[in-house]
Amino acid sequence: MNSASKLTYKLSHTEHYMSQLDDVFKWIKDKNLKVDLSRYSRYKGYIDDFYDMDNPKDTLILESKFARLNEAAQECFQIVQVYEAFKDVKSNNFDERIKRIVAGQFYTEKKAITPSEISDKDFQVFEKILSAD
């Protein structure tokens, strides 16, 4: 495997993200936010629960837990990406943004967003986050 393939694999592998959650939680705590009571600690709990459980015989329960795992993992991956891009930023304005992210809606409370609901400003913020790498 060449070095580019190794890098791509590392950055797309679940373990890369999950192994950083403790660092992310510490980073959030250092900003005087209660990460242990946040949606991210619940997400981590859902992920741990999925891997710690015995395989249920009822496929509907398994599907439900797998769906919860996927949603929780996506949210955790995103906060790790924010951490990787901005962990060294020192700004009160940035800390306020992190506070809003951590206090944001739990994924089951979110409604689907249609393309017409995404403002130009939202898209510009998204582009800046992506270009931070």
Score class of each variant (00 low, 15 high):
residue 19 S to C: 03
residue 19 S to M: 09
residue 21 L to T: 13
residue 21 L to I: 15
residue 21 L to A: 00
residue 22 D to C: 06
residue 22 D to N: 14
residue 23 D to C: 02
residue 23 D to H: 15
residue 23 D to I: 11
residue 25 F to L: 04
residue 25 F to D: 08
residue 30 D to S: 07
residue 31 K to H: 02
residue 31 K to L: 02
residue 31 K to V: 00
residue 32 N to Q: 01
residue 32 N to G: 00
residue 35 V to R: 03
residue 36 D to T: 14
residue 36 D to Y: 15
residue 37 L to Y: 11
residue 37 L to K: 13
residue 37 L to H: 10
residue 37 L to P: 03
residue 38 S to Y: 06
residue 39 R to Y: 03
residue 40 Y to I: 07
residue 41 S to C: 10
residue 41 S to G: 02
residue 43 Y to D: 01
residue 45 G to M: 05
residue 45 G to I: 00
residue 46 Y to K: 10
residue 47 I to E: 02
residue 48 D to Y: 11
residue 50 F to R: 09
residue 52 D to L: 15
residue 54 D to G: 07
residue 54 D to R: 07
residue 55 N to C: 12
residue 55 N to D: 12
residue 56 P to I: 07
residue 56 P to Y: 09
residue 57 K to T: 11
residue 57 K to N: 09
residue 57 K to C: 04
residue 62 L to S: 13
residue 63 E to K: 15
residue 64 S to N: 12
residue 64 S to F: 13
residue 64 S to R: 13
residue 66 F to P: 01
residue 68 R to S: 07
residue 69 L to Q: 07
residue 71 E to V: 07
residue 73 A to D: 04
residue 73 A to K: 08
residue 74 Q to W: 11
residue 75 E to N: 01
residue 75 E to H: 02
residue 76 C to I: 15
residue 77 F to E: 09
residue 78 Q to K: 13
residue 80 V to Q: 08
residue 81 Q to Y: 08
residue 82 V to T: 09
residue 85 A to F: 03
residue 86 F to V: 00
residue 87 K to V: 06
residue 88 D to Q: 10
residue 90 K to P: 03
residue 92 N to P: 11
residue 92 N to D: 14
residue 93 N to K: 13
residue 93 N to T: 10
residue 94 F to Q: 04
residue 94 F to Y: 08
residue 95 D to P: 07
residue 95 D to T: 09
residue 96 E to V: 10
residue 98 I to S: 07
residue 99 K to R: 13
residue 101 I to H: 07
residue 101 I to R: 03
residue 103 A to I: 01
residue 104 G to S: 12
residue 105 Q to H: 06
residue 106 F to G: 03
residue 106 F to D: 10
residue 107 Y to I: 04
residue 107 Y to P: 13
residue 107 Y to K: 03
residue 108 T to W: 06
residue 109 E to M: 10
residue 109 E to D: 15
